[in-house]
Design a protein around this nucleic acid. Structure first.
Length: 462
RNA sequence: GGCUCGGUGGCAGAGUGGUUAUGCAGCGGAUUGCAAAUCCGUCAACGCCGGUUCGAUUCCGACCCGAGCCUCCA
């Protein structure tokens, strides 16, 4: 199934055509590690993880790099406030980021380059820019000269004139043009810094990505991803730096995810509605968060709310309920993705909502199927779930495990004992006692399902 | 002000120039000791005004409303 991706630069979907089909490259802007990641940060993580999984079905080798920005003024401020070195802050939050994203079933990226490990390549890139008259040093800074690039603004679709018209920020005196951006800024002796041809400096924000992409992935990468807000200035400036320094095509496909709203409002610190992944994980399992994030197309805004999470949890439970019903069934065949609706949906610019609708169809088919059809249907549902990064755990763990409920309810043994007692009561037609036991279990957060094969149970929050 | 992107049934959310996804909720039914789960059926939508067309929710234009970026930001 041919893969189509929406390219921000072209503003339309294009057939994906990697430079080297034997080694596909993707770079996604990762976190600046100075605090806990919030749920908005989780969206690109989940979206590009899903793309990573999808790419691996098309190509034998996919190199996925996600950087860690470990030098930045925000990190410096946090370090100063806590009286520690920046690498302490950066190390702590990079680790927490890895833990949080793992909870979202995001696979680790192939590479995780750190800015401070790539100062050499950043200096080399800058020297190339200066040599080619695209950058200049001024008052301890090194700046990119936006007028030196004829088609600066091509990615975001704006011109230098437009930007001047909209300028709302006072322009620093050392800039030749208001749109010039910083490659390096001066660092005093007590600030983190590196010796360079321009004195003691630290890198500006955009430089690391250009340098690390070149260093670790090569001159031209296939996919560069991130949040929509990065289109300008971050990615525009990366593009300018790389093109002007090296002259090669930089990125084949630019991909950007839309933002999350929180209960209909923009998420912002001033509104106090920033939810960290970590906080949400105390109330919902990571798979619920992931499923919620995939329930809308990645280029559409998604309103993040309790109702969304509850529905996500309910939907996953119904899928796991179906999977429990075929738990004992052996998978006896390979799934061919070609021709599968969920696969076609994902190949069409990662249409996850449409793919999810195909999961519902498969689940219904399993629920209706005769025994002989079940193994193949089960295999297809699991394959679909695997591409989306969901439905891979033991159904009983989902339905009955501790994570299924934050009620400090009954343990599994107690539940089983009560169910046994109820079965006996029912056998004696003592329905009063049977219902009494059901009520007791309900109070303990347990839902019973009587079926021909016996009584099944699950925790209420699943 | 400039540049982008949207407005779909009660809610979430796809998609399409004609046969009107999917899920939740609702309603009716099957099943069930009761319930749950499941299955079947069903109600219901394309911001507004024009244009193109045999026919537009889908294409074009205007308008209204909303969002993002232009400043750190997923």
């Amino acid at each position: 199934m041919a893969l189509q991706l929406y390219n921000t630069r072209a503003r339309r979907k294009e057939a994906f055509d990697p430079v080297d089909p034997d080694c596909v490259t993707m770079y996604v802007c990762g976190p600046t590690v100075y605090n806990l990641a919030h749920i908005g940060n989780a969206r690109p993580v989940v979206v590009f993880d899903t793309l990573f999984r999808l790419l691996q079905t098309h190509y034998d080798k996919v190199v996925y790099a996600r950087n860690i920005t470990d030098i930045d003024d925000k990190i410096m401020r946090a370090a100063q406030e806590q009286g520690v070195a920046i690498d302490v802050i950066a190390g702590e939050f990079a680790q927490k980021y890895r833990e949080d994203t793992a909870q979202l079933n995001a696979l680790p990226p192939t590479l995780e380059p750190h800015a401070t490990d790539n100062i050499g390549p950043m200096i080399a890139l800058t020297e190339s820019l200066i040599e080619r008259n695209h950058a200049y040093a001024a008052e301890g800074h090194v700046l990119f000269d936006v007028t030196s690039m004829k088609d600066y603004g091509q990615l975001s679709g704006r011109s230098l004139d437009d930007m001047l018209a909209g300028a709302r920020v006072e322009v620093a005196g050392y800039k030749r043009h208001p749109g010039d951006f910083v490659l390096w800024k001066p660092s005093s002796a007590d600030e983190p810094g590196w010796e360079s041809p321009w004195g003691r400096v630290r890198p500006g924000w955009h430089l690391e990505c250009s340098a690390m992409i070149r260093e670790h992935l090569g001159p031209t990468i296939d996919i560069h991803g991130g949040g929509r807000d990065l289109i300008f200035p971050h990615h525009e400036n990366e593009l300018a730096q790389s093109c002007c320094a090296f002259g090669d095509e930089f990125v084949r496909v630019w991909m950007h995810n839309a933002f999350l709203d929180m209960d209909g409002e923009k998420m912002s610190k001033s509104l106090g509605n920033v939810a960290t992944i970590r906080e949400l994980l105390t109330r919902y399992r990571g798979e619920v968060l992931r499923f919620a994030l995939l329930s809308a197309h990645y280029r559409s805004p998604l309103n993040f709310s309790e109702a969304l999470l509850e529905q996500a949890e309910q939907t996953l439970t119904s899928f796991y309920n179906t999977l429990r019903s075929v738990q004992g069934i052996e998978l006896d065949c390979e799934v061919s993705l070609e021709g599968e609706g969920f696969y076609a949906a994902l190949c069409d610019d990662l249409n996850t909502p449409l793919a999810i609708s195909e999961l519902h169809v498969l689940a219904r088919d399993i629920n209706k199927a005769s025994g002989s059809d079940k193994p193949a249907l089960k295999a297809r549902l699991l394959a679909a779930g695997n591409l989306l990064g969901i439905l891979q755990q033991d159904p009983l763990e989902w339905l009955q495990g501790d994570g299924a409920s934050d009620l400090q309810g009954l343990d599994a043994e107690a539940v089983e004992a009560l169910i046994a007692e109820r079965v006996a009561a029912k056998a004696n037609r003592d329905y009063a006692r049977a219902d009494e036991i059901r009520d007791e279990l309900t109070a303990g957060g347990i839902i019973l399902e009587d079926s021909a094969g016996g009584t099944l149970w699950r925790r209420i929050n699943s």
